[in-house]
Design a binder for these strands. Structure first.
Length: 564
RNA sequence: UGCGGGAUCGUCUAAUGGGUAAAGACACGGCACUUUGAAUGCCGCGAUGCCGGUUCGAGUCCGGCUCCCGCUUCCA
């Protein structure tokens, strides 16, 4: 039976974008239809920031009965590749969204864009400019400096048409000429000071091949792509606010459908980098193993780390949509990761830092099976068996020779409960020559098999264990934040990005895990009891030689007093 | 010395044509329960950037100030 795990009725807040859209639907704008789009450039892997945009755009479409397009804004062949196109599609699907037939590429509009550029030339609204990049910059002026007209600004339509055709035909070298919109060289908005529409790049494009040697700029492409697709609400991040007047200018000059652009604040998360450029740097310089390194804030990295898709969706839904540029605590993401995994991940016993325990009153060579619940949160989760014997491993941190009062775990002369087994008492500590504890000599109470003592005596602590004889060796990768600084990617004077990395972002351990874990399925998640959530690495794990990634730790209620 | 956008608990958000004692979540602290020091439940902590104005009444409206972010790519 399904316990109605009531999603505690949180009052649904309507963010300002949803408000605008609700108003538009109510007023019958766009015929009451909603068409959104997620428009990544295929020049890198999607990260947590994109996840928010995906959830917003696809979510909006789902909520309003509209559609959301997936469009690749592939206007710069230099940085783009089909590898990225594929990973992006994988990531969107993994996140739980579907674009159906609505898959588009800006490069499919190159012909149309070219025709429109010709139209603007004919209308006297665009011209071919001979200025170099540096000259254009100089002519553009600055915030408090007037711009200067290009010497080519008043070229005749005929000459512009001729030159533009020759640009297209490859008669000029890269950077030799450009097509610019004729707007206003003194606009207070720099984007309107005759922006470039086309640049010459003799470069292979991942989809159009060598057909073109001139490529439309993003600014000249984006608004019209939205328009062509009948996008009603074009949602983007704050930095494009200043571009809106330019998109509007193009749309009006062309006299085509006018989507409404709405800007919201980009998602920032503590200790997390969301700059594609810097992420690429980490990958290229080998500071991580790849785009899907479990420490990466990429969707593929988080997936490999073991973050469930629903946790990402919950997180995005709960970070809010506003125009305030804030910084969300990573703890919020981890909350949803734990929340999801707590309900779905089976429990297992794994000893990450093993300490041997010998139970002196347990018969040598004997063993027995103990039963354990797979998931106490799930009544249907079932039970499994795990072997128990004379020699066990427990977590080194679960024993302390001189224990403080609040230490509920094992110490000399005191009892703890071995989860799903018996009470255990430590009698003697064995050390090596260096004084390091190597073994604990203990006794158990066979009367406490049910976890309770017939005489009613209580124990304060319950610890996990594995049978030494039956345990399986496993590699366990303990991940921590890539950047210790809350503001990841912030680089102090004289430092480089690599200098700001957390040196302890990965710690590899050889663990002893319960036998059932030997054949755990790649990608599956477990809660290692009292430790954290772990998943079987999809790349490096193999049956009998499991490799686990720590997804996130369990919250720890025990905080040793800092004072001695 | 420009243009555009912002500013509510430590953090992210609510308070939707001015109207209770500014609400929730996270974080933090405490308590209860517990065969996970988890989960769960309960309690606590804690904010309207500043100055003035309008009003019976202002987080919300008006004026001034301060601070933060973005913008001078033939990147997106």
């Amino acid at each position: 039976m399904n316990t109605p795990e009531s999603d505690k009725a949180e009052p649904e807040h309507v963010d300002f974008i949803r408000q605008i859209i609700a108003d538009d639907i109510a007023s019958g704008k766009n015929g009451g239809k909603v068409v959104t789009r997620f428009p990544p450039e295929p020049n890198g892997y999607l990260h947590i920031g994109h996840a928010k945009s995906i959830c917003l755009n696809f979510g909006l479409a789902k909520e309003t009965g509209g559609v959301c397009h997936l469009r690749f804004d592939d206007t710069n062949p230099e940085k783009e590749d089909t590898e990225y196109v594929e990973s992006i599609m994988d990531d969107v699907r993994w996140l739980g969204f579907d674009w159906d037939d609505n898959l588009f590429y800006a490069s499919d509009y190159f012909e149309q864009l070219y025709d429109w550029a010709v139209k603007l030339i004919k209308d006297g609204k665009a011209y071919v400019c001979d200025l170099s990049t540096e000259e254009v910059r100089e002519y553009r002026g600055g915030w408090n400096k007037e711009g200067k007209d290009s010497p080519n600004r008043d070229r005749s339509v005929e000459e512009n048409l001729d030159l533009f055709t020759r640009m297209k035909n490859g008669e000029f070298k890269d950077g030799e000429k450009s097509l610019r919109a004729k707007i206003d060289m003194n606009s207070s908005n720099m984007n309107l000071r005759d922006p470039a529409m086309y640049r010459i790049r003799h470069q292979h494009h991942h989809r159009t091949g060598d057909k073109w040697c001139i490529y439309p700029t993003y600014d000249w492409t984006h608004g019209e792509s939205d328009s062509l697709e009948g996008i009603t609400h074009s949602i983007c991040t704050l930095e494009f606010e200043n571009h809106r007047p330019l998109y509007d200018w193009y749309i009006e000059a062309l006299g085509i459908h006018h989507p409404q652009q709405i800007e919201f604040a980009r998602l920032n998360v503590t200790h997390t980098l969301t700059s594609k450029r810097k992420l690429l740097e980490l990958v290229e310089q080998g500071h991580v193993t790849g785009w899907d390194d479990p420490r990466m804030p990429t969707i593929s990295g988080m997936r490999r780390r073991g973050y469930p898709a629903d946790a990402l969706r919950d997180f995005c839904a709960h970070t809010g949509v506003t125009k305030f540029n804030g910084m969300t605590d990573l703890a919020l993401l981890e909350l949803y990761v734990r929340g999801s995994l707590n309900k779905t991940a089976n429990r297992a016993m794994a000893i990450i830092d093993p300490l041997k325990v010998v139970i002196e009153n347990y018969a040598d060579g004997e063993s027995e099976m103990r039963q354990a619940k797979n998931n106490p949160e799930d009544e249907e989760g079932g039970i499994r068996e795990m072997p128990f014997g004379r020699e066990l491993y427990i977590e080194r941190a679960d024993f302390m020779e001189d224990a403080p009062k609040k230490f509920f775990r094992l110490t000399v002369g005191k009892e703890v409960r071995l989860k799903n087994a018996f009470f255990l008492k430590c009698n003697e500590v064995i050390k090596d020559d260096a004084g390091e504890i190597v073994e604990l000599r203990c006794t158990y109470d066979p009367e406490t098999s049910g976890g309770k003592a017939p005489d009613g005596r209580k124990v304060k602590g319950t610890i996990h264990w594995v049978s030494a004889e039956h345990a399986v060796d496993a590699e366990v990768r303990l991940y921590d934040v890539l950047f210790e600084n809350e503001k990841a990617g912030e680089i102090p004077e004289g430092m480089e990005l690599k200098d700001t990395l957390n040196p302890k972002s990965l710690e590899v351990k050889q663990a002893k895990v319960e036998p059932s874990l030997a054949t755990a399925e790649a990608g599956s998640s477990f809660q290692f009891e009292r430790t954290g959530y772990f998943c079987v690495d999809v790349k490096d794990s193999s049956p009998g030689k499991p490799v686990f990634n720590r997804t996130v730790t369990l919250k720890s209620g025990y905080k040793p007093k800092p004072a001695e």
